[in-house]
Design a protein around this nucleic acid. Structure first.
Lengths: 341, 341
DNA sequence: GTGAAAGCGCTAACAC
DNA sequence: GTGTTAGCGCTTTCAC
């Protein structure tokens, strides 16, 4: 029973037991070169006997490295979009010996600010953020300290940093064009918080399509633009209001997965099977429900963000990059419903 | 422009600039007592001028603390169950100055073992694991080193550790009883990997209900038990096979959310609206689709696991605890379909 | 191939 | 209230 009762097994203990110097033990444990195979085996066996584990704080400190953690800031992991993003980032970072530490802002600027401070205090090596903030000052502070920040899904407005976003305008325009081509003229736009760049870009793409179809289009389409539908509950309520109005839309474009969920709930509640629907973001049951969506790859986005982190870590002075990922329209029926006569 | 070009601003720099000793600077920065307000302000202002940030490795090392990270091991964040679990754990741990670091095993024992090793190397303070392993030796090694391990969803079989699980048997029994009460006699059981304790417990609960109804029940129900339906694709295929058989089930109990998804896809594909369905695990669109489920609170489970971590950190010698969380049947239609004549 | 000494940046004692 | 002196456990020169 050579296992020590309480923690504190140090490299020195291992070295002593193996009858070598501290440095040799270090070399062996870290898999460095210039150690005879025999010596290495002796050290490793001693380490295993003692249940030794390198103290990562000491190791990082001696090496002059701050940490091996990358902070990932998202809205809420309950949203599969963020979960996939985090997953993609984590698996890519693992390949570079980096770990992910999580933080959820719940889309609150205040909470996000606290979170970023916390990450700074924990000396994270870099940060990947799907930021809900309008001013990115806390991130600027991180950057100045040499901590790379990569923005995902939403590019920063007042900061020069790597970012990776979706082709929001293109996706939204494709959705609108699809509905227009199907003969719809009264198309509602269900947007997220107005302050988010994704909201604006998607509305821009939507607007472009609607404007291009002008003449054919009821000029009143702008009355059907709604914002603030960040969660399903609000989206459902807004959908109800739209459909109860005097001149209701014949189609709805839900500009994110939570909004789509809300629309689906409201349509189901009232047994509405005629209103057409296209959603931004794909989801597990979209096929079962026959929901046409603007799809993209959140996991790839996370992985790509991780790659940007690694590259900037390697070369802090390279030019910042803005990567725009494509979307694609997946038709499944809900977007192909004909407008009510 | 007092901002240093490259990293390395240390407490010593701050102390020098503030004209105080290293220790006083440390006290001020750490918000300790016994520092005059005036001195504290001076130090804090110097720190802010220099863009100083405490080096957490050095701080932890000096304090004799391994780290402030808790590793959370799950199958795959794409599964909302795990995402909620992680979220619940993270927010509870934050209240105790602990951060979460993520790892996905993809339900592979080998990958999970690598992951646990990695966590050990990163000197995590504790681990919360939804383990897919049958032998928990790697976790035992962690425990011996004084790193608490809390098991969630699946209790360890060969290890004494805190764990928090669902009332799997109770939930499954309730589901079976509900279908039996509805007149179903041929009820299929769609299980996850056989090696998982959740599989076994849910099958046990299911079996109890079926056996209790013996006499009324077709003795052949055991032929309708399937395992290995871990992902939607397999679940869909198995569902198809069951329904294509000579004497198909009139109802299906899908023993987890991925299985339910697969069943829904297959039922939708073949336009089957008569086969009854109850799923274990609630999901966003269950109400829209009218799916009856055995519901529970994954977020609470994560939070509870975090609480167990904190308690054991505070008192490593307390008796290990097994917490069992309740489930509840939520009826929405799919479980109330009458058996085919 | 191996080892001795110095020090990473910080905090814990213990003075003052 | 503030400062001084030792380390925390490890990795790095640079010798041997």
């Amino acid at each position: 029973m050579g296992i020590p009762a309480s923690g504190a097994t140090t490299l020195a203990d291992v070295a002593a037991r193996a009858g070598v110097s501290l440095k040799t033990a270090s070399r062996a444990v870290n898999g460095e070169q210039h150690v005879r195979e025999e010596t290495r085996a002796k050290v490793l066996s001693a380490a295993s006997d003692l249940g030794f584990q390198l103290n990562s704080s000491a190791s990082l400190l001696a090496r002059g490295i701050a940490s091996s953690f990358v902070g990932v800031v998202t809205g809420d992991l309950a949203n599969p979009f963020y979960a996939m993003l985090a997953q993609g980032a984590a698996s890519e970072l693992r390949a570079h010996q980096l770990s992910v530490t999580l933080g959820s802002s719940d889309e609150s600027s205040a909470q996000e600010e606290v979170l970023v401070d916390e990450l700074a205090r924990r000396s994270v090596r870099a940060v990947i953020a799907a930021s809900a903030m309008t001013s990115h000052a806390p991130y600027a502070a991180l950057q100045r300290r040499g901590v790379p920040v990569v923005f995902v899904d939403r590019a920063p407005t007042d900061l020069d940093a790597d970012s990776i976003v979706l082709d929001n305008a293109g996706g939204a325009r494709a959705a609108a064009e699809h509905l227009l081509a199907g003969g719809h003229r009264r198309i509602a736009f269900l947007g997220d918080f107005e302050r988010l760049p994704t909201y604006r870009e998607r509305l821009d793409g939507f607007t472009a399509a609607m404007d291009a179809a002008t003449g054919a289009v009821d000029a009143g389409w702008r009355e059907l633009v709604r914002e603030g539908a960040h969660d399903p509950e609000v989206a459902a309520r807004v959908t109800g209001e739209l459909l109860d109005a005097a001149n209701p839309p014949t189609a709805i474009f839900a500009s994110n997965n939570r909004a789509t969920l809300g629309v689906l709930r409201e349509l189901a509640r009232r047994g509405d099977t005629t209103t057409a629907l296209v959603g931004f973001d794909d989801f597990d049951l979209a096929e079962v429900l026959g929901v046409t969506v603007v799809a993209h790859d959140a996991r790839a986005m996370g992985a790509q963000a991780a790659r940007l982190v690694v590259e900037r870590l390697a070369d802090p002075r390279r030019d910042t990059e803005l990567v725009r990922l494509p979307t694609r329209l997946v038709t499944r029926g809900s977007g192909e419903r004909a407008p009510r006569a």
